[in-house]
Design a protein around this nucleic acid. Structure first.
Lengths: 122, 122
DNA sequence: CTAAAACCTGACGTCGACGTGAGGTGCAAG
DNA sequence: CTTGCACCTCACGTCGACGTCAGGTTTTAG
């Protein structure tokens, strides 16, 4: 599989895939002419990378976590890190929920404005 | 209240507060000598700004939303935007939960490694 | 064999929310 | 009055995950 096809199937840019390789997140074989060739499994791997990025992990952490995901085991000493990330994500989720509730309140007021919410001048 | 005090109470840097003013998120009075003076309510406002930033809103959106939060009403046409942000945040939350589940799985495997998870060589 | 897609390697640009000096001023205490 | 901390305004630096342009090569379709 060539890079463009992986990009399409995974829904990311070609540039991103090259960047992942540069960061040692996504290895590739090379053709005789030097072009990257990927196994079909690369698509899934890219999706995973994206998911971890979306969780706010920096590429360095992703690099550490990836082999663990694939081996099902964890390098000793990394567990603390993983649990820290887990906590970070959980905290982030509650933050987001709080912010969303704020927006909810504003939206709700719009639909059904409470009496004391007449704004002074506008 | 001076800027350093607001920063301390809100848990942000002085630089951040100046930045907020620059972005028209946090107005300030000035003393005769040109120093910023804030009402006590500024602390709460800063916390709100932080919350919205944490939700991933760019400063431009925060600028739009802030008056709505304080007036309890919404500028017409902004509701769509708010609902879009709401959806974005919800989506982000599910993404985070998925990523967290991934980490959970890895951590769980560590504590109690399943049989077929012997990694080849390591 | 020849175009034209798709790919390659640098390498600089981006964007946002500040960090970080540099160099100068306000203000409260003694 | 002066020490000294807090504050001021530029203005450039940062960091991460790519975007993007330049200039050249490989692969594939016909």
């Amino acid at each position: 599989m060539r890079i463009g096809e992986v990009a399409r199937q995974a829904g990311v840019s070609v540039r991103a895939l090259r960047y992942y390789e540069e960061q040692d997140l996504l290895p590739s074989e090379r053709s005789a002419g030097g072009q990257r060739r990927y196994a079909a499994s690369a698509v899934e791997r890219v999706r995973l990378i994206q998911q971890l990025f979306a969780a706010g992990l920096p590429s360095r952490s992703v690099r550490e976590v990836l082999p663990c995901v694939y081996s099902g085991t964890v390098a000793p000493g990394l567990v603390n890190h993983l649990e820290a990330e887990h906590a970070r994500i959980s905290e982030r989720i509650t933050d987001l929920q709080a912010a969303r509730d704020r927006l909810d309140a504003v939206i709700a007021n719009t639909r059904n404005p409470p009496a004391q919410c007449r704004h002074p001048r506008d």
